[in-house]
Each structure stands twice: as structure tokens, then as C-alpha cells.
């Protein structure tokens, strides 16, 4: 187990290196650069553009720029933002905390909704099953930014007293902060809940027809104990896996949801940084987000082994 974790962590290094190269090359393949982006629409002389580029090291060959960045990153320095002229690290980690909180709330909502609807669907079948599956298909078909827009419209038009765009920092007002994240979290959670719900349903159905459930009944255990110890515990494994991976993806920040609800998280930061071609910021965000995804993968594997004793990584 410990060996598995060590090996998996070692393997993340080459993956991160690859990701950083791809991100680096892709950004520079985009038309325009920071110098032009910062000039905006105003006409600016070629000499002035060159001065800006030279001052930021953008005139160097690409491999030199990359190696420079890599060397700094390896020593823990994520660079200085072009636009803000402040260290990227001081900008990215507070935003990561916001996104992490949003993801946590969304994950709890999705887990609660998904497991409940999936269980009801699998246990009651019939009409409930139809309703749940119809609802899931609907949610799956509608992208989360549409859901977010609908939520904004609904509350903006009919419940204007509920502030939609009033993000409050946690340090200033913890309960207000959580309240301000509920609606954005809901728009993320609805989509994730489909995955949880469908996987829970399928897993519970599969487990229900297993012999050991019949044995559990023959033992005279109460229905609630059978549900908890025999159905849910066995059905949990695949659900943990898919949910973990979905949450990992959310931790990278949801550009659309954070932009719509004006939440200062990773997604919004990425959006702003791409718009202004703030290379160090983009590199850092990609690096942090992919590290999170890789770590979540390892965590999912560990969780897998914890839930199911048959799983061993030796």
C-alpha cells in the first residue's frame, strides 16, 4: 500500500512535466502575446512592444524561456504575474482555497442528491425509477452554465432579495461566505449528481441480485442493516471512484460558473489570465490544477482499498 502510494507519487513527476510543456507551448501558439494584450486596442509602436517583451524575457528562444520557468518552478518560485506584478503564488493559493470550498460544498450536495436519488431509484423501481432517470437525463443534457444562468434568472427576477453576485470572503463573514456559495455550488452539483445517481443506481441494482444479499435476508437481519452493510457498502466502490475523479476536475476551477457568479476562484483567475496572456499565471494554474487531479487519483485508489478489502496494490 505505502509502496503503491510512493510509486504513484513518483509517476506524477513526468506527467506534470509533460503537462507543463504542453501548456507552455499551447499558450505561445495562441495569436498575440502579453505585450499586445496589455496595449489593448490603442496603437503602440513596434519599439515599445519590443521593450515590453525584452523586459519580460519574451524575446528569448522558447526553450530558454521554458527552462528558466522550470528551474524557478522546481525551486518553488511560480514566477511573477505580468499584469499584477506580484508573485503568482500569493494570488493563486487564496483562489484555490475559494475553489476548494466551492467544490467541497458542491461535492456534498452532489453526493447527497446522487446517493439519495440513486438508492430510491434502485430500491423502489417503478414510477420513482422513471422520474429519477428522466430527471438525470434532463440534467445531463443541460450544461451547467445553462443551469447557472437559469438560477441567476430565477433568483434575479423573482427573489431579488437573495444576493446572487455578492461573494463574501470567508475571513470577513464565514456564514455569509458559505451562503454566497450555495447557488454556484448547486449549479455545479446538479451535473455531478447525475454521475453519482446513475452509478449508485447501477451498483445497487447489481449488488441487490448478489447471493450474499439473499443470505443476509435469510439471516433475519433488519432491512436497514442489509441496506447499510450489504447493499451500500458494496455499491460504494464504483461510486467513490467516479465521484472522486469528477471532484478533481472541479478543483481545477469552473471557468463558466465562477465567471457567471463572480467568484474569485481558480476558474475566473484562469479566464482573466488567458485573456491578458499572463503566461506565468497560466502556467502556475495548469500546474496546480493538474497536481490536484493526480493527487485525487491517488486518493481515490487509497479510498478504494479502504472500502474494499479485496483491493491490494502489492
Amino acid at each position: 500500500m505505502i509502496r503503491m502510494v510512493a510509486v504513484r507519487l513518483l509517476l506524477t513527476a513526468p506527467i506534470l512535466l509533460g503537462v507543463s510543456i504542453v501548456a507552455f507551448v499551447l499558450m505561445r501558439a495562441l495569436p498575440g502575446d502579453f505585450a499586445q494584450a496589455s496595449a489593448g486596442t490603442s496603437t503602440i509602436s513596434a519599439e515599445a512592444l519590443d521593450t515590453i517583451r525584452r523586459s519580460l524575457g519574451l524575446d528569448l528562444p522558447m526553450w530558454q524561456q521554458y527552462l528558466g520557468w522550470l528551474g524557478a518552478a522546481l525551486s518553488g518560485d511560480l514566477g511573477v504575474s505580468f499584469t499584477l506584478r506580484t508573485p503568482v503564488a500569493s494570488e493563486i493559493f487564496p483562489r484555490l482555497a475559494v475553489t476548494a470550498e466551492l467544490t467541497l460544498i458542491a461535492g456534498l450536495m452532489a453526493g447527497l442528491m446522487g446517493v439519495t436519488t440513486g438508492l430510491l431509484s434502485a430500491r423502489l423501481r417503478g414510477m420513482t425509477d422513471w422520474v429519477v432517470r428522466g430527471w438525470n437525463s434532463l440534467l445531463l443534457a443541460v450544461p451547467n452554465f445553462v443551469i447557472a444562468t437559469l438560477i441567476v434568472l430565477l433568483f434575479g427576477l423573482y427573489f431579488p432579495s437573495v444576493g446572487i453576485f455578492n461573494y463574501v470572503a470567508f475571513a470577513r463573514d464565514p456564514s455569509g461566505n458559505i451562503a454566497s456559495l450555495l447557488l454556484p455550488a448547486l449549479s455545479l452539483a446538479l451535473t455531478v449528481s447525475v454521475t453519482v445517481s446513475e452509478n449508485t443506481r447501477a451498483a445497487v441494482l447489481e449488488v441487490s441480485s448478489q447471493d450474499y444479499v439473499m443470505v443476509a435476508k435469510s439471516k433475519g437481519l433488519r432491512p436497514r442493516a442489509i441496506l447499510r452493510d450489504y447493499l451500500v457498502r458494496n455499491a460504494l466502490t464504483p461510486v467513490v471512484t467516479v465521484t472522486g475523479l469528477q471532484l478533481a476536475a472541479l478543483l481545477g476551477g469552473s471557468i463558466l460558473i465562477e465567471t457567471i457568479f463572480t467568484i474569485p476562484g481558480m476558474g475566473q483567475y484562469l479566464f482573466d489570465s488567458i485573456a491578458s496572456r499572463d503566461y506565468p499565471a497560466i502556467q502556475a494554474i495548469v500546474l496546480v490544477a493538474s497536481t490536484i487531479v493526480l493527487l485525487m487519483n491517488v486518493l481515490v485508489d487509497i479510498a478504494y482499498a479502504r472500502v474494499d478489502a479485496r483491493v491490494s496494490y502489492d
Binding site: 448478489q210 450474499y212 439473499m214 443470505v215 443476509a216 435469510s218 452493510d229 457498502r233 472500502v307 474494499d308
Partner: peptide, 11 residues
Amino acid sequence: FQDPMSSLNPV
């Protein structure tokens, strides 16, 4: 029951 391989709760 008949099949001991599948009659015990694996977890």
C-alpha cells in the same frame, strides 16, 4: 446456500 463463493459479503 449452494454457492459459497458468492454467498459471503466481500467487504
